[in-house]
Structure formats: C-alpha cells, structure tokens
Simulated assay, not measured.
Amino acid sequence: MDTRLLRFFVSVYEQKNLTRAAEQCFVSQPNISHGIKTLEGELGKSLFVRHKKGVDATIEGHQFYPTVKRLLSELDLLSNLFENTEFKNKVVIGVANGLPQEHKQQFFRKATDLLKSVEWEINDISRKNDINLLVREWKYDEDIFLPLWKEDYVLCIPNGNPLLKKEVISIEDLKNEVFIHCPTCEAHQQCLSILNMGGHYTKTIANCSSKTETLTMLMAGLGVTFLPEWFVDGWYGFETRKFDGPRYFREVGLAYSRKSLKEQPITMLIEYFSKKSLKVNPFSKLGVYHKK
C-alpha cells in the first residue's frame, strides 16, 4: 500500500476538506481526490462521505484512522533512526582494579564532557584497548604514560593495636610488628625497602593476591599494612596514622600506544590532560570510620 495515499487519507480526515488537505500535502485537489478513491478501491470500503461543505469520515474511516496514524508515526521514526546518532565516538578503555572511585568518576565525567559525543567500552587493562587507566608500573613497555594523579599510601593499623596510642609512627615503632603484604601490589618493593631500613625484622601474617583481600585481613584485625589513601576511605575496623619515614606513593595515569594517537578522541584526551590536572575534591570522601 502506497504510504503517500495513507498520508492523503490522514490529511483529509483531520482537515475534513479536500482543498485544505491538498494545500497541506502540497498537491492539487484532483490528486487528493484520485488518491482517496484509489485507496478506497484497494480497501473495498468507502472512507468518506462527500457533501457541499467538505467530507465526513465513514465508520470504516474512523476505524482506519488510528491504525494509519500510528503506522505513519512509526515509519517516520524508522526513517530518522540513523540520521541523529547519539554517540559519534567510541573509546575502548581498560581500567585497572583498585583505583579510587572518586578519581575514576572525575576522569570519566571530564572526559565525557570533553569528547561531547562518546560511547565508552570499559574492559580490564590490555594491549587491545585504545587506552588504559592504570598505575605506572602496570603499563606495557612500548606504551607512553601520562600521569593524572599521585596517591599516598597510608599506614593502616587495626583497632586495639597499641600503635594507635601514637599520633606519628616511626620505623622503630614497626619493629617486630605483624604485617599483611600484597606481593602483586605496584608498591610492594617500596614497602619492603621501607620496612627493611635499619635491619628491622617484621613478621608476615599474610600475603594477599589483591588490595581488596589485604583490606579484608586488615579489617579482621590480623595485622598492619600500607594501602592507598583513597582506597581505604570509608571502611572500618582500623585507623590510619602518619608515618615518619620515606614517602610511599603510587602514580596513576593514562597509558597508550603511538598508533592510538591516530584516533581523534584519544588525541583530545591526551592533549587536555597534558595541560590540565585531574582535580579531586578532598571533602568528597565518604568514610570517617578509620579516622581518629
């Protein structure tokens, strides 16, 4: 069935006048009349009753109208389906585990505003991604690294530990303390170097495969550990203390290959964050349980 004839029908039905319908459809009145007769012939039903002032719909015309109206509306939506694609850019990004939510939120919020029309595909870190958000030590050798933020590690002490009586902890205070370690952690070697200063011996109660498991053992009260400041925010069962020793931190940023710079969205991200630092509101932390 010719959709043009259906549009003629809707116009005549709504205008109740062949002349006005012809003007609305930008055709002559004879074309409208011929179109309606053709449509009635295909249906085998009269759709309008003609009189001196115009036309009135028949019972069949009234029944036909809502179906045709809906059909034409759906056809209009179908024809415009690919005209206004909401997302014109796609970025495949890998995001490392254990990164603070607040920092990730700020990055994706700013990056989405910058790229305007972007669809994100978020995966584990991999060479297959356009770009990776990760700790410097985890980047691939051939990739370029653009730092976004530095995050200090803090000394975490479980509730009930006598060390909590002190405001500042020295390396001497950690002598013979029971420690929870995460060998896969990017800063594990930093931690061992600090603890081995002065030849002190520390006991290891657990070696964990992730920061999350390290946090679990800490909250269980099994020992002390160093963890990223924002990573531990909001949890309970322990407190943090200032450590009077070498700074212990990690650097997080974007890692990308040179070929990724051929993609405009990646180039825009790199150019922007090369000039603008990622700002995180220090008052946006949610947790207070581990603060003294």
Rank of each mutant, 00 (worst) to 15 (best):
R4I: 08
L6M: 10
R7K: 11
F8V: 00
F9H: 00
F9S: 00
V12G: 00
Q15K: 12
L18S: 07
A21H: 00
A21C: 06
Q24V: 11
F26P: 00
P30R: 01
I32Q: 01
G35D: 05
T38M: 10
L39N: 02
G41T: 15
L43P: 04
G44K: 05
G44D: 03
S46Q: 15
S46C: 10
V49C: 04
V49E: 08
V49S: 07
R50W: 08
H51S: 13
K53C: 05
G54A: 01
V55N: 08
D56R: 11
I59M: 09
E60F: 13
F64L: 14
F64Q: 06
F64R: 08
Y65F: 15
S73L: 08
L78T: 13
S79R: 12
E86K: 14
V91N: 04
I93F: 08
N97K: 15
P100G: 06
K104L: 15
Q105R: 15
Q106M: 09
Q106V: 15
A111D: 04
A111Y: 00
L115A: 06
L115R: 02
V118A: 09
E119K: 13
E119N: 10
W120I: 05
W120F: 05
E121S: 11
I122P: 04
D124M: 09
I125Y: 03
R127I: 09
I131L: 11
L134A: 04
W138H: 14
D141V: 12
E142V: 10
F145L: 02
L148D: 06
E151L: 10
I157V: 07
N159V: 12
L163V: 05
L164F: 05
K165T: 07
V168Q: 00
I169F: 01
S170M: 01
S170P: 05
L174I: 02
K175I: 04
N176L: 11
I180Q: 09
I180L: 10
P183D: 04
H188E: 06
Q189K: 13
C191P: 02
L192K: 07
I194T: 12
I194M: 09
L195V: 05
L195G: 04
L195Y: 04
M197K: 11
G199N: 03
Y201S: 13
K203L: 12
S209P: 13
K211M: 14
K211H: 13
M217E: 10
L218S: 03
M219F: 00
G223D: 04
G223L: 03
T225V: 01
V232H: 01
G234L: 02
W235P: 00
F238G: 04
F238D: 06
E239K: 15
R241K: 14
F243V: 07
G245N: 01
P246W: 07
R247Y: 07
V252S: 02
G253M: 03
S260R: 01
L261R: 09
I266M: 01
M268H: 11
S274W: 07
L278G: 02
L278R: 03
N281L: 09
N281S: 13
K285S: 10
